[in-house]
Design a protein around this nucleic acid. Structure first.
Lengths: 172, 172
DNA sequence: CAACTATACGGAACAATGTTCCGCTTGTCA
DNA sequence: TGACAAGCGGAACATTGTTCCGTATAGTTG
């Protein structure tokens, strides 16, 4: 089954089930039995990296100021998303087959990020009216780029968003 | 054909071609003959509203400061996107069937928005390192919400992004 | 060791959907 | 009135997600 994961990662999140099955040398039924929802398969495939990204939030928080930690972590998240073709699309698709994905994803990441946000709010370096869940949603949306997109548009817009997060609260 | 457009708008951007055809009382072939690419159909359907949104950028620019015009226009764009289920998804899908969509969309809107950005940059109220195209991409990504999403997350994150656009340039 | 059973597997079968293509209708012109 | 052209409708085809069933296999029991 781990072989299936590798094949899967290569083809992208919305690879055809038949392809995945063939590459893994199993039948499609076998995949569905182990991962009834497509989300289950995706979660299984990226669990390790997801946990690593979550852990990095804690690590960065312990080594940097909240504002810096947040910026660095956002880059980390962007890397995660950028290297998984179609992942962000699945995350925000609303497709029932991807039902569990947002919950799992946010569930793992949000608490760590919220810690950073809270610390920054206390020290006044990060505005206090931002929820980690919203921020993660926004970051994953902005980080989702396609081959034809302008060079590092995602990175630039992420920076701008963080300027809004770290700067003063809305003037208007 | 105009009837097809209405039916189409009701079911969402990724409505099944058969449904659209049935509702319009025509065969699927007829649709494909008039709109070889799915993008063509979408563009045709929303052209009027898209132009109106573009025109509103000019209007707002003439009545308000650049910063205020930009904020108001962003809300206008968000309304546009929010009322077209699946539109943002199609816009950023990368699917060949939606090929022409981003170009058309950006092509119509970007020049007007760039005017606002330029005016703001001159008066110092808007940072000067933002490209209209990037901003529109980002706004449409953030505005794309699904049923079940937190209340007005899109609106809040859009506000934050604009705070980044209108506030001081990145400190880091 | 043999028979039986439960488990899991593979892939055929089914359903939905995008897209193409062909036969027919309809309207025009000589 | 007859021939022709254009446009239409929907059948047909291909792809893909998902379910289901016959079968092989491993484990258990006598």
């Amino acid at each position: 089954m781990e072989a299936a994961k590798a094949a899967f990662a290569e083809l992208g999140v919305d690879a055809a089930m038949r392809d995945i099955a063939t590459r893994a040398g199993v039948g499609v039924g076998t995949i569905y039995r182990n991962y009834p929802q497509r989300s289950d398969l995706i979660i299984a495939v990226f669990r390790r990296e997801l946990d690593a990204t979550a852990a990095e939030a804690d690590h960065l928080a312990s080594e940097h100021s909240p504002a810096t930690a947040l910026r660095l972590w956002a880059q980390s998240l962007a890397r995660f998303v950028a290297t998984k073709r179609g992942f962000a699309g699945a995350l925000h698709s609303g497709d029932p087959a991807y039902n569990l994905l947002p919950g799992q994803f946010i569930g793992v990441l949000a608490p760590r990020v919220q810690s950073i946000l809270d610390a920054g709010a206390v020290s006044g370096t990060i505005r206090g009216d931002i929820r980690a869940e919203d921020l993660i949603h926004a970051l994953t949306r902005l980080a989702d780029s396609h081959p034809g997109d302008a060079d590092d548009r995602a990175g630039r817009m992420t920076t701008v968003l963080l300027d809004g997060v770290i700067g003063a609260p809305s003037a208007g």
